[in-house]
C-alpha cells in the first residue's frame, strides 16, 4: 500500500493517544487502518511508541511478589508454543478493517440511508462509533457539524469538502469547529471509514429525520 500518495495524515494528538492506548476502539480502528496504508504515520507512531518506552524506562519501580519469576516461568511452560501469526491479506481492505467486517468489501452488510448513501456500523465499544459509508459518485453526505471529533478515512474513490479533496488513504480529522458537506468525486463511488465520538448535528430538517436511521 505504499504506491498511493497520501496528503492528509493523522494528528500528533491522535497518534500519541493511540500509542498510549487512550483512544476509544472505533478511533483505534480508524487509526490502525490508516497506518496500515501509510508508512509515514507508521514511522511517526514508532516515534511515539519510543516515547512510551522512554517513559517506562524513567518510571519508578514497584517490587514484584516473592516467587514472581518462577510463577512467570510456569505460565510460559503452561502456554507452550506461541500461536502462529495470522496470514496477511493478499489484497483488498487493510487487515484491521477486514477483522471487523469479517471479510473484504464484498462481505459488508450495507443498509441504505437514502439518496443512494449506504452505511454499515462496525462492532466496537460504545464510547465511539465506527461506520463504513458508501457515497455514490457525485452524491453528498448532508451538511453536518460535530460535538466531538469525526475521523473520515477514504478507502476508495475520493470526496471533496470545504477543506480539501481527500483521496484513498487520506484522513480528515474534523472537530467541533468544522461544518462540512463531503461530496463524492464525480468519477467514482466513494467508500470511507468514519469514526465519531458524539452524535453529528445536521443543519436541515430532512437529515434530522434521517438521524435515527444513521444512528449518528
Amino acid at each position: 500500500m505504499t504506491d498511493i500518495e497520501i496528503k492528509h495524515h493523522l494528528t500528533d494528538a491522535l497518534l500519541m493517544a493511540y500509542s498510549a492506548g487512550n483512544l476509544p476502539e472505533a478511533f483505534s480502528l480508524t487509526v490502525a487502518t490508516h497506518i496500515s496504508m501509510c508508512d509515514e504515520c507508521r514511522a511517526r507512531l514508532g516515534a511515539f511508541d519510543a516515547m512510551g518506552g522512554a517513559m517506562v524506562e524513567r518510571c519508578e519501580t514497584v517490587d514484584m511478589s516473592v516467587g514472581s519469576l518462577e510463577a512467570t516461568m510456569q505460565r510460559i511452560r503452561a502456554a507452550g508454543a506461541p500461536p502462529a501469526t495470522a496470514p496477511r491479506r493478499k489484497n483488498g481492505l487493510p487487515q484491521p478493517l477486514q477483522d471487523y467486517i469479517g471479510g473484504d468489501l464484498d462481505a459488508v452488510k450495507w443498509r441504505s440511508v437514502g439518496m443512494g448513501v449506504k452505511q454499515a456500523i462496525l462492532p466496537t465499544s460504545r464510547a465511539a462509533t465506527a461506520r463504513l459509508l458508501f457515497i455514490p459518485a457525485g452524491a453528498a453526505v448532508p451538511d453536518h457539524g460535530h460535538r466531538g471529533t469525526e475521523l473520515t478515512l477514504v478507502l476508495q474513490g475520493a470526496f471533496v469538502d470545504e477543506v480539501d479533496r481527500f483521496g484513498p488513504g487520506d484522513i480528515e480529522v474534523a472537530n467541533e469547529d468544522l461544518n462540512h458537506t463531503p461530496v463524492a468525486d464525480i468519477g467514482a463511488d466513494c467508500i470511507c471509514l468514519a469514526a465519531t465520538d458524539a452524535p453529528l448535528r445536521f443543519r436541515g430538517l430532512i437529515p434530522r429525520l434521517a438521524q435515527p436511521f444513521l444512528r449518528i
Binding site: G21, S28, L29, A32, T33, G53, V56
Partner: peptide, 30 residues
C-alpha cells in the same frame, strides 16, 4: 525498529487496554 524498552512498553500498553480498559485495540497490519 524499536529498543527493548519500547517493545516491552507496547506489550504492556496492550495488556493495559485489555485488562484495565476492557477494550480491544485494533493493530495496524504488520
Amino acid at each position: 525498529r524499536a529498543s527493548a524498552a519500547t517493545w516491552i512498553f507496547t506489550i504492556a500498553r496492550n495488556r493495559k487496554i485489555d485488562a484495565l480498559r476492557k477494550q480491544k485495540r485494533p493493530e495496524p497490519e504488520d
